[in-house]
């Protein structure tokens, strides 16, 4: 009898606890209701991306020496380097260069290893097309620079989380001239100069 009563007691305790946990969960969701939305109204507002953002790859045709390091370090050997040996100058001459961004995983290895820095990451991420073959960029398309978000009159640029002041999560309505958290590169340099 006592054992049975204990079982009943434990069961009620568990039920009450479950109810308490559901109540806690509800209070968390309810608390979210009073927070401001962090939505970025995309086509009208865009984020200023961090300088480490890995977007579409930019390629400078004239700097390339057709060494094919990018092909070797690429996880899927994606870049297509079409070159021929120029007998007169005894150098490789680049004819075509292309990367298919439908297959690229934007790991940035090619950019990392390029000996002449002819590859670089841009902040372009709007790569949608109606046909996946249109994503196969040739050297001309790779040489184009994306339009800067801050220059676009149609777009309200918003700071990304990394550029927001300390403790601020919402990029909307930020006062002009508010500084981001931490030191800026020039300040670090200044400090280093002062110390030395």
């Amino acid at each position: 009898m006592l054992k049975f009563l204990k079982q009943v007691g434990d069961y009620t305790k568990e039920a009450i606890q479950a109810g308490k946990y559901i109540g806690q969960g509800l209070s968390v969701t309810f608390d979210h209701m009073r927070r401001r939305p962090v939505t970025v109204q995309y086509p009208y507002e865009k984020l200023i991306l961090s300088e480490r953002f890995r977007g579409r790859i930019h390629f400078e045709f004239d700097k390339c020496i057709a060494c094919e390091v990018c092909v070797r370090v690429c996880p899927i050997n994606l870049p297509v380097v079409d070159w021929e040996f120029n007998k007169e100058s005894k150098k490789k001459q680049l004819n075509h260069y292309s990367i298919d961004f439908g297959v690229c995983i934007f790991c940035g290895n090619c950019v990392e290893f390029c000996p002449t820095n002819c590859l670089s990451m841009t902040e372009e991420y709007e790569l949608s097309t109606y046909d996946r073959h249109e994503l196969n960029y040739d050297s001309v398309a790779l040489g184009r620079l994306p339009y800067k978000v801050t220059d676009d009159p149609m777009v309200t640029p918003l700071r990304q989380l990394a550029y927001l002041p300390k403790g601020v999560l919402d990029p909307h309505g930020l006062p002009a001239g508010s500084k981001r958290a931490g030191l800026r590169p020039e300040e670090i340099v200044e400090q280093a100069e002062k110390e030395s």
Partner: peptide, 10 residues
């Protein structure tokens, strides 16, 4: 709307 508010969306 309430779902959006609970997820900090609009």
């Amino acid at each position: 709307k309430i779902s959006a508010a609970a997820q900090q969306r609009i």
